[in-house]
Computed example of a mutant assay.
Amino acid sequence: MKSVLKISDAVVRRLPIYLRFLNELAKNNVLTVSSHDLGQKLDLNPAQIRKDLAYFGEFGKKGIGYDVLFLIEKIRQILKLDRHIAVALVGAGNLGRALCNYNAFLKDTMKIVAVFDASADKVGSNINNLPVEPMEALDSSVKENDIRIGIITVPSHEAQNVANMFVDAGIDAILNFAPINIKVPSHIRVHNADFTTELQSLAYFLD
C-alpha cells in the first residue's frame, strides 16, 4: 500500500500566505512570478517556497516561474477553498461581532453562517444580517447547515462547554480565541488564537 505523505503544519500555514500575495499579484494583472520574487516579497527562502509547493505537485516552469492564476487555483484546491465551508461562531461580544463583520468572509467560500450566544440580551439581534441564535439551537443548526468549523469567542470559563457542544454537534475543527486550552477528541483539529500570549511574547523582544 502506498504511504500517504505527511505534510507539516508549518507548510500548511505558509500556503495562505502565498495565496494572499498571489491574489494581490492577480489584482495588479501580474501573470507570472518566480520563487525568487516570492521569497523577496515574503521574506522567505525561495528554496523553501519551491519545496512547499512541490509537496503538492509540479506547478512551476524552469526559467518562467509560476503562472499566478494557475497557482492561485491549485492552492485554493489544496486548502479546500474551492468548495463551500460553513462556519459557526459562538460569542456575540465585541470580538465575535468584529469577526462576523470581517469582509474577508464575504469574499470567499468560507463563511460564518450562524452565530450563537447564551445572553438573552443578544439573542434575536443581528450581526451582518446574521441573527444571533440561542445556544439551544446550535446542535440542529450545525447539522442543518453542514457546518464544519466552529469559532469560540467566549470568556475562558465558558470555552470548554462550548467546545463540548461543538464536538457533540459533529464539528470537525475549532478556532479558539478564548485564553484557555480546550480539550477535544483527537479527530477534532483545534487552532488557538490567544491575543494575550502573542502580546506577551512580543514584549520579550522589546529593547
Rank of each mutant, 00 (worst) to 15 (best):
Q77L: 07
D194F: 15
S35Y: 04
F105I: 04
K143F: 09
N129I: 06
G60E: 11
N181M: 13
G57P: 12
V184H: 02
T196K: 00
D194L: 13
L106F: 06
S125C: 12
A88D: 03
H187V: 01
L69R: 15
L106W: 13
V68K: 12
A137P: 00
L95Y: 02
N128F: 09
R50I: 04
E133H: 06
I182Y: 03
H187R: 01
I147Q: 04
P155R: 01
G91Q: 08
A118K: 14
I127E: 12
K6A: 02
R50F: 03
E58C: 02
R148C: 03
I7N: 06
L89T: 06
P185R: 08
D194N: 15
T197F: 05
A86F: 11
F177S: 05
K183E: 07
E158V: 05
L89E: 08
L42F: 04
M165F: 00
L199G: 00
D9H: 06
V33L: 04
L79F: 07
I174H: 04
V123P: 01
Y204W: 12
E144I: 05
I17A: 05
M135C: 07
D168K: 14
G39H: 03
R20S: 15
R50S: 15
N145V: 02
L206T: 00
S35R: 03
K27W: 05
E158P: 00
T196L: 04
R83W: 01
K111M: 10
R189G: 01
I182P: 09
P134A: 11
S119C: 07
K62Y: 09
P134C: 12
R13V: 06
V30A: 14
A118I: 14
F70C: 07
A10T: 14
V167C: 05
A88F: 02
G91F: 08
P179T: 03
L175C: 04
N103F: 06
R97C: 07
Q160W: 06
K107R: 14
N128K: 02
K61N: 11
L106S: 14
V113A: 08
E198C: 12
K122R: 15
I85H: 06
I85R: 09
Y55I: 01
V11K: 06
A26R: 14
V30Y: 01
D43V: 08
F59S: 04
H36P: 00
E158Y: 09
G124N: 04
K27H: 08
Q48Y: 05
N45E: 02
P46T: 10
K74H: 10
S186W: 00
L31N: 15
D146M: 09
